[in-house]
Design a protein around this nucleic acid. Structure first.
Lengths: 353, 353
DNA sequence: GTTTGGCACTCCATGGGTATGACTGCTAAA
DNA sequence: TTTAGCAGTCATACCCATGGAGTGCCAAAC
């Protein structure tokens, strides 16, 4: 039903306008409002017909029979992906970001916290920041175990215990001897090193000299990446009180759900960590998840903008903005990206421990 | 008007009962309810007369003409100080506290956070924990400067910059030479030391060997104490969503005020730091502040239970519970004291860095 | 075929009016 | 000093009528 082809130019414009108007007013938007405020060159009756089709297509919904329309998840999605004009940082915003980082702390925890305050202040929503994990555990042991000719188990042990264990499926048969040789090579080279200091490049070099396949190399990399992330990640959030301004959170149940999520590190982490899970995150590219795309049902009326940031070879973190679905996506994406870029630069500059 | 003497036995019982009932029901309590639920041996009319006098005495207030009575700040205060039966920890609570600390982290930040979660869970309110400040700056320089024969300026400089500067008034004339000699002695003995490791006893010894007066010794001590505290204190809060259950926070403005306070480290700090300001805090002695006693107007409908905790000679922190004035004081005081005691023991046991 | 004006219909939000009930304070008698 | 009784007050809940916003549909116009 939802299909690119069923959005001709006029429908697209109407959809975009409905979303835009709803984002600004928080009121369901009706055909007359649309015809009056934006000169569509057609009458409200025509708009009514189009809106009925947009509703049939799943882009709009009606809160009740005699109300205007409100965007659905799919409506917002289409708006964000195809209809919304991109925005770049306003002069004022970028100045405020610059000022903030000019006098920012040198301590990672503090920087992360200050960044969430900045971002929540600028965005008027809840801001979240996930710090790059800084794992100081010592490497102990790694073992690639032969399970069958096409599957293996990779185990990484650090001073904190088993830090990663994952089953790998090979596309070609492997020999137990090859796995043992690679394990030995890794162990002899890495013994006693701090997890944090083991760069992907190191792993690649060892794998190569041990004659491991590209596939094995990737498996080792991923296992080590996982082992690093086992460390409790540092995460901060700020600006929950901003959400009180939004009419959608005047319902106490929704508010409670949000507050619980903010206080539970774990849920908060899950919310933003997806951003890290993908392949290499594209630099400072903001990413939006809307309503049910977020997973948890309590968040079905929320959206999240996430953007990764990175510094040096020390790892990658995530900034995020959580708010009602009815959020100014383009602006928030620009804000998040800009802040992420500045944060990365700042972290590089001050050479945080 | 408010005076011990105007509380005869029956008035005291009625006041206590009103407070108790209101704490449990959150509804203004009327004379008939009182007569029926608690057998006072007198009729509701008599109780009405007594309540009218309690209101005249400032212990009770009426939300509006035809409503029951609600305790005033003074009413709560009298209840807490003189009428309320003390409680000790229930078996269940003390087990939960014990269990929590048995498997608690060894990392100070984590312990503090876990403690706030525990305490907010047990109390059903917002819990706050202030960690003992742990200053790792290096000592650089101290100077006692002669301003006049009776006044001096003491400056302490650490690797973080000027950490303390205070004017002292002497009760007797002092000589510039004496101040210089003392300054030199301190600098030569303390050069390069970490602030945290400089014990009061060290300072005393140096002062004594330099022939300084008791007054000077105290001035030096205080300057160093101030220099240590300059470090941003670590503070954590948890359980804001608990407050949503309380009817007094269904008003969005009040809720927003609370959320702002929770997110602003500074305000939060001010709220609990009073506990440290007094003389030596009595060990694990819980302390209650009610409504306007707290200072900030936004908190005029809240109460706070604070209790200091200490471990070794490493410093002192504070646990606190913030909630509506209508809180079960005796229970919360027992909870806070018990948790503070266990926290102190835990910190001693694991010898946190 | 598309667009438009007109019209009937639906549903929510609002406001006034009224009933209800939980109090109190007062008075007069015990 | 206590008590019963009673009149008075005020917040709350509820009902119902009204108004308004918006839709869907149809027949006519383009």
């Amino acid at each position: 039903m939802i299909d690119k082809t069923d959005l001709d130019k006029r429908k697209a414009f109407i959809l975009a306008t409905v979303v835009y108007e709803y984002i600004n007013t928080a009121e369901p938007v009706g055909s007359v409002t649309l015809a009056q405020k934006y000169n569509l060159g057609v009458s409200s009756a025509t708009i009514r017909n189009e809106m009925a089709e947009l509703e049939a297509g799943g882009y709009l919904v009606q809160p009740h029979t005699s109300a205007g329309r409100v965007p659905s998840d799919a409506g917002y999605r289409t708006y964000v992906d195809r209809l919304m004009p991109a925005e770049s940082l306003t002069k004022d915003d970028s100045r405020r970001i610059r000022d903030q980082f000019r006098e920012a702390s040198r301590e990672l925890t503090d920087v992360i916290e200050q960044t969430t305050r900045l971002l929540s202040g600028l965005s008027g929503n809840l801001a979240i920041a996930l710090a790059p994990s800084r794992d100081t555990h010592a490497f102990k042991h790694v073992q690639l175990l032969w399970l069958s000719s096409r599957t293996s188990l990779v185990v990484v042990v650090t001073s904190a215990g088993v830090a990663a264990q994952r089953v790998v499926e090979w596309s070609n048969d492997v020999l137990a001897d090859d796995l043992t040789r690679l394990s030995n090579a890794l162990n002899s080279h890495l013994g006693g090193r701090i997890m944090e200091d083991i760069a992907s490049a190191d792993l690649d070099r060892i794998c190569e000299s041990a004659g491991a396949s590209a596939e094995m190399r990737d498996a080792v990399r991923q296992a080590f990446a996982q082992a690093r992330q086992t460390d409790e990640p540092e995460i901060a959030a700020a600006g929950a009180q901003n959400l009180l301004d939004q009419p959608e959170f005047h319902d106490l149940r929704k508010l409670r759900a949000i507050l619980r999520i903010v206080e539970e590190q774990r849920t908060l982490y899950d919310l933003v960590a997806d951003e890290l899970a993908g392949d290499l995150p594209r630099k400072s590219q903001a990413h939006v998840r809307i309503g049910h795309e977020l997973g948890p049902d309590e968040l079905s009326e929320c959206s999240v903008v996430t953007v990764p940031y990175s510094f040096g070879d020390r790892g990658v973190g995530v900034l995020a903005i959580l708010g009602p679905r009815r959020m100014p996506y383009a602006r928030l994406m620009a804000l998040a990206s800009g802040t992420a870029r500045s944060l990365g630069e700042h972290l590089n500059d001050v050479e945080i421990r």
